[in-house]
Design a protein around this nucleic acid. Sequence first.
DNA 1: TTGAAAGCGCTAACAA
DNA 2: TTGTTAGCGCTTTCAA
Lengths: 415, 415
Amino acid sequence: MIPPRPWVTFSKAGGQTLESLLRDVKVPCSARDWADAASSGRRGADVPDGGTGFVRTLRGNVSHAAGGSGMEPPAPPRRVTIVDVARHAQVSTTAVSKVLRNAYGASPEMRARVRRAIDELGYRPYAAARGLRGQTYTIGVMLPDIRNPFFPEILDGITSRLQGTDYQVFLGPGCNGEKEEARVTEAMIDRGMDGIVLVAPVSSPTRLEHVASVVPTVVIGRHGCSPVYDTVTDDDVAGAALIVSHLAGLGHRRIAHIEHHETDPTRIAEMPNAQRADGYRRAMRSLGLADEIDVVSTSYTQQGGYRGAKELLGRPHRPTAVFAGADIVAMGVLEAVAEAGLSVPGEISVAGYDNTTFAAFGPISLTSVDQAGHEIGANAARLLLERIADRHKPSVQVRLSPTLVPRRTTSAAPE
Amino acid sequence: MIPPRPWVTFSKAGGQTLESLLRDVKVPCSARDWADAASSGRRGADVPDGGTGFVRTLRGNVSHAAGGSGMEPPAPPRRVTIVDVARHAQVSTTAVSKVLRNAYGASPEMRARVRRAIDELGYRPYAAARGLRGQTYTIGVMLPDIRNPFFPEILDGITSRLQGTDYQVFLGPGCNGEKEEARVTEAMIDRGMDGIVLVAPVSSPTRLEHVASVVPTVVIGRHGCSPVYDTVTDDDVAGAALIVSHLAGLGHRRIAHIEHHETDPTRIAEMPNAQRADGYRRAMRSLGLADEIDVVSTSYTQQGGYRGAKELLGRPHRPTAVFAGADIVAMGVLEAVAEAGLSVPGEISVAGYDNTTFAAFGPISLTSVDQAGHEIGANAARLLLERIADRHKPSVQVRLSPTLVPRRTTSAAPE
DNA sequence: TTGAAAGCGCTAACAA
DNA sequence: TTGTTAGCGCTTTCAA
């Protein structure tokens, strides 16, 4: 038995795990001999390193460069640059640059020569340097919370639309709160990103417009609109209506809603949570259930769902169905309901929003609303590319319709 | 009702959402008047824009610049540069640079002056340009799958360790497969990132060493070791032993394991899945259960767990406990077990690995192994900073011990 | 169609 | 301690 102690090994090879096997496959870390590699001068005789994109820089005598110990790691090889390519192809750097950007003014023969040189040297343009004059071919995506299983869908949509282009996506790490968002957007701007996608940001409209005035921007999930950035949203009002009419169709009347509490007046109407709550109220009214409207304000977290459900279950006349504003909220509701010893959907129906993997998971099987995250992401990427191509084009708002995904947490109302 | 056009709606539902409210809060996109803003020349009279980090560039007559229509959006303002700061503070750009980097050779008075100028102009250094000579202050983190709820823990650990430094983290988007990994690592290198963290990469050791030879690198979750990169791993063998002895302690003897099938011989010993399977076998043997060893090879996915469980449940003498190599695999197992009409843990116990949010979720309550993701990430960040500071330092392997988290999916063996 | 030359914003070697 | 100057790798005028 291995002692499971909090156990940190700064080992050159202390552990007892599969070591013999590892040793068969790899040379142990410490026994590596660097004597055949060299050295640390910045410019010396450059030896093209056959298609690896790097060039070994040799300096004087190799054994001398090894420094006597024979165990020194090699200096990082110098990168192949546009100059190397130009020299190799016997053309100017301008020509290479034109080929790289598919720009006008290079004969087919020249293009072919340059491309051959690029392949032979394994050249890749240095994006950081390109950015100084032109583009970095980098797109930043800011997700509010990497843990929310809905966001990967959006991300997939974005990357799939960017497939085949020269653009590369990088994610800002999960950030909650305006300060964090500002930090991340600034970091993206400072790194010369060509465009950014903000997913469900919480920052003020003013701040969003500032960002968009500096770099092409698409905002996902906010219902406000601006002339300087494009938006892609889910029709949250319609989504809420889908759930409510689904439940009403099953005979439910006491349908409660748990929403995310929003205080900031400049944001209140723009955020999806407000739209969902609004959609819930409208749908209840149009179904003649205005008197049954029952909204609990907590937050879009599991905790929030738990607290909200506790409150609803404590009502003298408890609801027969709960529409949670997000799947994660529904998780908390299910937990509270289970604790109260009630059966789902027999005694109480529960529905969420977002159709996350949680909801789809068999043993849970939560009724939810699918936002078509892939579509949302793909549209955002498309709009961003269009705006990068023409910063002055009029702004566009895309709104996509959600669909209902009925599962096993909703059924006919009791009695 | 103002139709907010240009306006693209792909909606069937055509919901009229809170529009009146939105109108109260924001000016509609199309009605914005840009007449007070100008223009598009590259360099003109520069007007410092009071702490915003940008300078408005005016060109000739403002009304003329507005182009007659009076509705043209302003050109993106020119960035404040180190030259602006130097001029404002009446010092050289070198001085500013020194202050920025806390470098040697600037008097306290000069530092103060420069800092004041920086604040007054709202200057932020342009990381892309810095990268051309020095560092970009950017660290890339590659996650194999953003959907796996274990990875955010690692990410938190990394960012928390980087808090307070000038480094900013960006994530490569989820990539599976060697080709994708190569694309992402190349993209990071091409963007001049100062260091990169590879989480559970699948690339060959050779490829990892190549990356590490170009840029400081820390590898998380691979058990191999190399002189050019540091590693941080969970002791998967110990983790597997925790589960097995927990189950054996509950009286189980027929304990089966579902592993991820690995074929590549250069990787087989390095990957966590192989280590876990190995740990399972060793623990079984040391507990005198060598005859009961029963391993099904599928994959670390929910599907894989489902298929593996199907096979195990079809055995003439089915196991009383299943140790799934990952929580996500255990999800599939639970699904198959539920389908077979067996009760958990009454008739069969199930355990996972990773202690994801799934496992922690009340109604599921899966027994699992906690990897201390936060610690893993924090150690990786620390090692990376050390390696950035000294690229030639000897490589370090950190191994952290996991802990058992017993929950409600495991209990005493039946009979 | 081609290439020479001037930067982009910053850092680093070197002089004063 | 300070400032001058020469690039980093690329794009972009602008002349040839």
